[in-house]
Design a protein around this nucleic acid. Structure first.
Lengths: 233, 233
DNA sequence: CGAATACTTGATTTCAGTCAAATCCCGTGG
DNA sequence: CCACGGGATTTGACTGAAATCAAGTATTCG
């Protein structure tokens, strides 16, 4: 409501443990601060599109971004989310390829754009930054590989439970055990890799089994252990 | 037959365009040469196991290695292959995690082991090496993400055709259009993420449609365009 | 407040997995 | 050289999970 469209500062931003810039010296942060451009996106805005060349990357300051690939009949496959502190779009800069996903906001979002040249400069000049970035990429790669296994071998039911756990880990739950992210049934389906109807049916089942409670898009976690059991670890 | 178990040299090895070490100065290569240990594996040997800590990575000199994750009922999901010039096991070094795949040779293989400390030293000391490594990782990440989409949305038939094309691109075909890698039906199934019987049935169909010819594990490509059409790009 | 979008439930279909049985193939040892 | 045993491959029959199709209800948003 009262959010002011204020330019976020890299110096205060980079304090967070999860921030990729955390090892950079202050003078470098100041240079980024000076060079970056800040963008304000309304919900459902596209930041960049799969297949396009992007000449920089984005650091999400507030809001949530879904990164998805588009399949043959236009069905989306959500690969991951960007949330405050995440960087998105860096993969294609580093690999020298076109963007492999579309980035679309699912909430009003503020993101800072930093040029690819600057990214490469930082990698070249600061070995600790290069290590951090590599660590991030390798973790992401591990997650993607894990998901290949899941999607190839697990049932939709197991995957849905797993996705819910993943969302809990990523976005947390509030005091009332309600998941701190609101997704449409279709978006859930596009994460799990299944049909919307299947997600609806399975959520109903979970609810009937008292594993979760549903109120619109709010999902309240009643029994995390149950979810874990359903997901098969 | 007449292959001699000879220690491969980093200096001659690194000439190849695809080699990750190609930007390193000669003196650094000499140091690697000195530090590395060379390992000779027979077919079906395990180089490292998913879930184990490995304190270095391997550079494949000759032979072929499959990298796979193991699912609940022990079914393998092949993530990628290592072939001459590939490096394997580096992901877990850089991310500081446990190995996320098992590496098993499917041919007699020679691979050089280089310590994780050395890898990190090279990343730190040589920005160009860091960039190359990052590029490699990011490309791999792009491929994994692509495969998530495929496996989530394509039919087994489409995926099998796609995997065959991928194998052609990776391992090539000989003068007689025969794929230069021999996999069991089960291994093909473990790439596609399906049952062995399904692969067998579909290969028979492809053969009946004159897209391929089969002689044991040899696959002869009769009509690549057909394969591409089946795979839906 | 009306249109559009999202959600839900039911009926039906189908792709692909599982199970079962037969055959093939290859290396080993007699 | 040949028989044997075990793994790999093939084919057929059956099953079932999940997709698709269809129709109605609820919500949201301009």
């Amino acid at each position: 409501m009262k959010k002011i469209k204020e330019t976020p500062s890299c110096l205060t931003c980079s304090i967070a443990k999860t921030c990729i810039f955390k090892t950079l010296p202050t003078e470098e942060l100041e240079k980024i601060e000076y060079e970056k451009t800040v963008h304000f996106y309304k919900k459902n805005s596209i930041i960049y599109r799969e297949g396009n060349r992007i000449n920089g990357f984005y650091c999400v300051n507030s809001g949530v971004v879904k990164l998805y690939k588009t399949g043959l009949e236009g069905r989306e496959q959500i690969i991951r989310f960007g949330k405050p502190g995440s960087i998105i779009g860096y993969r294609s800069i580093l690999s020298g390829e076109l963007a492999c996903t579309t980035a679309k906001t699912i909430e009003d979002t503020v993101a800072c754009f930093i040029s690819g040249a600057k990214l490469i400069e930082m990698v070249t000049k600061h070995a600790s930054f290069a290590m951090e970035l590599m660590k991030l990429t390798c973790k992401e790669l591990g997650e993607s590989n894990k998901y290949i296994l899941d999607i190839a071998q697990k049932t939709v039911r197991e995957r849905l439970a797993e996705i819910l756990i993943l969302l809990i880990e990523n976005f947390g739950i509030d005091d009332d055990n309600v998941l701190r992210i609101l997704l449409t049934r279709e978006e859930l389906a596009n994460m799990v890799g299944t049909a919307t109807e299947s997600v609806i049916r399975l959520l109903s089942e979970f609810k009937a089994d008292n594993v979760i409670e549903l109120k619109g898009r709010k999902i309240k976690i009643m029994h995390l252990e149950q979810l874990q059991k359903i997901s098969n670890l």
